[in-house]
């Protein structure tokens, strides 16, 4: 393979990415995890987390019926409990975007579509472009694209940058989330580098994982990405969104992630405009804990629908 050719501007951009110390990152996260959430603050946290969910189904065996059920759940998380927030979005494959769009109607819940040959990204750009255009034409409000990890690891940063920028150009009104698949990257230094690169290329959100590879949204990885968002904001005043995805299945983990956001980025990010959880099973644990917080009693999981 030919040595990668990177534009000098891109080289100088990446040279500014600070180095990340793994041990220190783990210690910072431990401080957050030692925080104790009680009472009204816990209730508020659970509501926030519910409102930030991208309710997701990304399976080869997905059918229109399955997607319609998911969309119903998105609008009716638990009708036995009054005044619950709605989730932020439903996240599906491009082929399901039209069905989801119709099922969600004017609920205000967004349709997010994965794209660019999700999850591997191993396709020619023309395919990735068509994939994205198809999702957009069917009404996707948000595009969750994957980066070309192989090119990134090979040092071909220009290729990765150009690809993100080209997809961004297609998303005239849709918001673009860029998925790194951090489980395939080698170190926190790499995570920081791809965060800085993606933000410069036009990402509206940066997202950890596809959910198909482990480890996914680990705390040190998320902390590193939040650090990149913070530094970008301090430099430019522009907010970038964050979406951890994969492995966040309990309310406890979700609340710890929100505390991390509060301390690292600030409260301005504590809204689904700027923060999302990519999750398929998180909602029910949040609902279970929410009921517990309201009534003081745990209910059986059997009282919560499994769509």
């Amino acid at each position: 393979m030919l040595p990668p050719r990177n534009n000098p501007d891109l080289i100088s951009l990446l040279a500014k990415s600070p180095t990340i110390d793994q041990t220190g990152s783990i210690e910072r996260v431990a401080r957050i995890q030692a925080r104790s959430l009680k009472g009204a603050a816990k209730l508020q946290g659970l509501r926030m987390a519910l409102s930030m969910i991208d309710l997701t189904t990304l399976e080869g065996k997905d059918t229109p019926g399955k997607v319609r059920q998911l969309c119903f759940k998105a609008q009716h998380l638990h009708d036995q409990t009054s005044d619950l927030p709605k989730v932020a979005a439903v996240c599906v494959y491009p082929s399901m975007v039209g069905i989801a769009k119709k099922a969600l109607g004017d609920s205000g819940i967004k349709v997010a579509s994965v794209s660019t040959a999700f999850p591997s990204g191993q396709a020619p750009f023309s395919v990735k472009k068509d994939d994205t255009l198809f999702a957009l034409e069917n009404g996707a409000d948000e595009i969750d694209m994957v980066i070309s990890r192989g090119r990134f690891l090979a040092g071909d940063y220009q290729f990765v940058f150009d690809e993100i920028a080209a997809i961004k150009e297609l998303c005239t009104s849709a918001r673009l989330k860029v998925i790194f698949e951090t489980g395939e990257l080698d170190s926190l230094d790499q995570v920081r580098k791809i965060s800085d690169l993606s933000i410069a290329a036009g990402a509206d959100f940066i997202k950890t994982s596809t959910g198909k590879i482990q480890p996914a949204a680990t705390f040190p990885v998320v902390l590193t990405m939040l650090g990149a968002i913070k530094d970008h904001y301090d430099r430019t005043g522009q907010m970038i969104g964050m979406k951890p995805a994969g492995g966040i299945s309990s309310a406890k983990l979700a609340l710890q992630h929100l505390l991390l956001v509060k301390e690292v980025l600030g409260e301005a990010w504590l809204t689904n405009e700027w923060y999302r959880f990519g999750a398929s099973s998180l909602a029910n644990d949040l609902l279970l804990q929410y009921q517990k917080q309201l009534t003081g009693k745990y209910q059986s999981a059997a009282y919560f629908s499994i769509d």
Partner: peptide, 13 residues
């Protein structure tokens, strides 16, 4: 859209 969220921790003694 800027949010006006404030999220203060309750005492946990």
């Amino acid at each position: 859209m800027m949010s006006n969220t404030t999220w203060n921790l309750d005492p946990s003694l």
